[in-house]
Each structure stands twice: as C-alpha cells, then as structure tokens.
Design a protein around this nucleic acid. Structure first.
Length: 390
DNA sequence: GATCCACGGGAATACACGGATG
DNA sequence: CATCCGTGTATTCCCGTGGATC
C-alpha cells in the first residue's frame, strides 16, 4: 500500500461521518433566522416600519437589489420575527380571526412567483388573515375580493403585505399589485421586493419610499458561507481558503455562492470523501451557470416540469429539443407525450430556465435544431429534487 | 354549473438553405 | 449580385378537453 492509498483511506468517510450534515442548511433556497451581513438594510427597514410600534401603519415601499443580495433572506426573516413579536402571545386562540385586530397589523409574505394573479394575491391575504378555509377554485376574483372586504369590515384587521420577487418573468407585476391593493388600501400597506432598480419601473406606480439592498462584499459573503457551512457540513470539510475562493468567484451573489458550495459538498459526499477536494470545488462552481436562474424560480414549476428538467440534466450529451423530448418522454417516471415534453422544453427556454443553443449548421435540409443547456445550478437541483421524491 | 389548471394536439409562423430568377 | 421561392424543420401560439374543487 503506497502513501496515496493510506492518505485516501484516511480521507474516505464511512457512512457514520458524512460530509454533509444537513443539505437544508447549505441550500440556496432556504433562509435562516438571522441573515448575516445585512445589518444596515435591516436598520433601514425597521426605521421605515417603526410606525407599527406606535399603533400606526407604514407607507408602501419598494425594496430592490441585484440577484443573490439577500432580499428574500432579509424579508422572510423580518416578517417572521415581526409577526411573532407583534402578535404577542403565540398561543392566543382566535375565534374567526387570526390577524391581530385593532392597532397591530399582520405581516403577510407573498411570493409573486407563486401568487401570479390578483386572485392568488387575495387568496394568500385572506388565508393568512382569517382562520376560515379559503377556496382555491370554483370562485372568481371578484368573489375573493368581496370576501376580503367582508372580513375587513367584520374584524377591522390591518396587514402589511410583503410581495417578494415582483416583476419577474410570468410573475405578479407591480402594476397588478397596485391595482389589486387599491380597493383595500386603507387597511393594507405593501412592500414590493424586486430586482429592478426604480428607474426601470413606472415611477407613477412606485411608492416614494425605496430601500436599496447592495450586493454582498466578498468578505461578508465569505462570512455568510462560513456560518452556513458550520451548521450544514462536517467540521473541516471545507477550509477557509476554499470558501474565500467561492466568495470571490460568486461576485457578491449569495445564491450562486451557496449553490457552488452545495454542489461541491455533494460531489465530495457522493465520491465518499470527508472533505471537499479541489475537483469537487471546481465541479461545484462549474455546475452553476453565470448568470444563473434562481433555484427558487425553478422550484415553483409544476412537478411534471421539474421532472422533465430532472431527466434533461441526466442526458449524457446535448441533444436537440426534439431528441431530448423523445428520450425524456420514454422515461419510466414520466407520463407525458413527446409533444408535451417538447412544448415544456420550449416554454422553459422561453423563461430562461434552459437555454437554446443553436448548433452549428447541420448537413440536412431545413432549420438546424438547437441543443439545450440548463441555466440553473444542476447539482443542487438534482440533489434537492431527489431528496424530495422520497 | 363555475372556475382553474395542466395537457394534448395541431395550426400558424419563423428560419435555413439551395436553386432559380431578374 | 440581390431577391425571390420552395422545401423541410424548428419554434411559437392557441384552444379544446378533462379532472378537480367549490
């Protein structure tokens, strides 16, 4: 046995010491209670929300910043904390109303990628604010709005609506939000959260209060990664130098940095090693396209579409759209026709979740086919998807 | 019966390439 | 040489259907 073998043996983990303790902790789509490195932004938000503590309501606001700058992390943490504090005792049993009525508003978080219509917006609001069951189908938008009004009249609640991922493809737009909230504006303030800088949105619709979330500094991002890794991975599984390199590479984008780290850890784990090797780190970063579609967006796709993506990323070679659709529809786990898979693939390309790459002109006649490349973190998607499918 | 949603399927349109035309 | 045209694919667009929920 040579020295390499001895070293390798020491490096290998048994089943008892996995490198990843908890995928959730290093996942780019899970948020922690205490976001790191966003202190100043939190301060500004709290300043703006201050009226809440004096029985008032804040104005509407728009929070903006580039992808991966921690907007969702900050807003989810903030709404969670505030609704806990503001609603007082968590064990209070309400009769019909869940929201605190009177001076204290409810904090309602809405993901505009999921709630894409006024109907869905009202549904989320009503569901959060009352204990009654709110129908998802069989009723129209007006019916839903009337119910909001009714509930409002009866219980006098107020709410602060945090609408995340505003104005992303296929999602709720600023305009739709403003229209939908207008009928209940006396009781509802909203905080829109999006990537677009204010000067790229209709200033007529934007509230005057605007809060910018800057990208992470490199060292801040490294600290964020260190914190996540310390709970999600085994000790010394990844060293400081590696973390620093990922942080450099990610250029301030926490989503991408976490995705690369996750991917690297997953590679090492799969290969049976107890620490992230050079090649794992490289693989982790290479599995994150730049720019990358947010994994959170991919996650909002229907199960069938995610299944199509799952099959797509395991094809050995880049295939034409048609060939890929053929192969994917043959998969045992998929019950979709070839035509539907093909349409899904084109739709996904349209959204930017995959990219059509025109192949070099081929021999045959007709328009040359294009191949498909994923534009999301493939290793992370694969692992999380497989974990969810039991 | 009304309303949603995901699929299926196919029509309509876009594009690439040669070859013919002016 | 610049265009037009025909053919064969690729891509986009749209609407009907059927299950599920109220």
């Amino acid at each position: 046995m040579d020295l390499n073998d001895r070293i390798r043996r020491r490096q290998r983990t048994g089943d008892d010491s996995p490198i990843v303790r908890d995928y959730e902790s290093i996942s780019p789509i899970s948020h922690v209670e205490e976001p790191s490195g966003r202190g100043p932004v939190l301060e500004r938000l709290l300043d703006f929300l201050a009226p809440v503590f004096q029985e008032g309501m804040p104005t509407d606001a728009y929070v903006h910043g580039p992808p991966g700058s921690g907007k969702s992390a900050v807003m989810t943490a903030l709404t969670a904390h505030l609704s806990r504090i503001v609603s007082g005792s968590p064990t209070v049993i309400h009769t019909t109303t869940r929201a605190p009525s009177g001076p204290v508003p409810a904090f309602v978080y809405v993901d505009a990628r999921v709630a894409t219509s006024p109907f869905a917006l009202y549904h989320t609001l009503l569901d959060a604010v009352t204990d009654e069951r709110v129908p998802r189908q069989g009723v129209g938008t007006e019916w839903m709005r009337d119910r909001v009004h009714e509930s409002l009249r009866a219980d006098q609640w107020r709410a602060i609506l945090v609408v995340d991922h505003l104005d992303e493809a296929d999602g709720l737009t600023l305009e739709t939000l403003v229209d939908a909230v207008a009928p209940v504006e006396s009781a509802v303030s909203w905080v829109g959260v999006g990537r677009r800088p204010p000067d790229r949105l209709d200033s007529e619709l934007l509230p005057p209060e605007r809060i910018e979330v800057p990208p992470y500094e490199k060292h801040t991002l490294a600290e964020l990664l260190t914190a996540r890794v310390s709970t999600g991975m085994a000790e010394r599984a990844i060293d400081h130098e590696q973390i620093r390199r990922v942080a450099d590479w990610a250029e301030g984008d926490a989503h991408d940095a976490l995705s690369a780290t996750f991917g690297a850890a997953d590679q090492a784990q799969t290969a049976g090693f107890s620490r992230v090797r050079e090649q794992d780190l490289t693989a982790g970063m290479n599995a994150v396209p730049r720019p990358s579609m947010s994994l959170g967006r991919v996650h909002t796709l229907s199960l069938n579409r995610q299944l199509v993506l799952r099959r797509l990323i395991e094809l050995d070679q880049a295939q034409s759209v048609d060939a890929a659709a053929q192969l994917i529809s043959q998969s045992h786990s998929i019950d979709l026709s070839r035509g539907t898979v093909k349409r899904f693939l084109y739709e996904l390309a349209e959204t930017g979740i995959v990219e059509r790459v025109s192949a070099k002109s081929r021999s045959g006649a007709g328009r040359p086919p294009s191949t498909l490349e994923p534009r999301f973190p493939t290793l992370v998607f694969r692992r999380l998807f497989d974990l969810e499918q039991h």
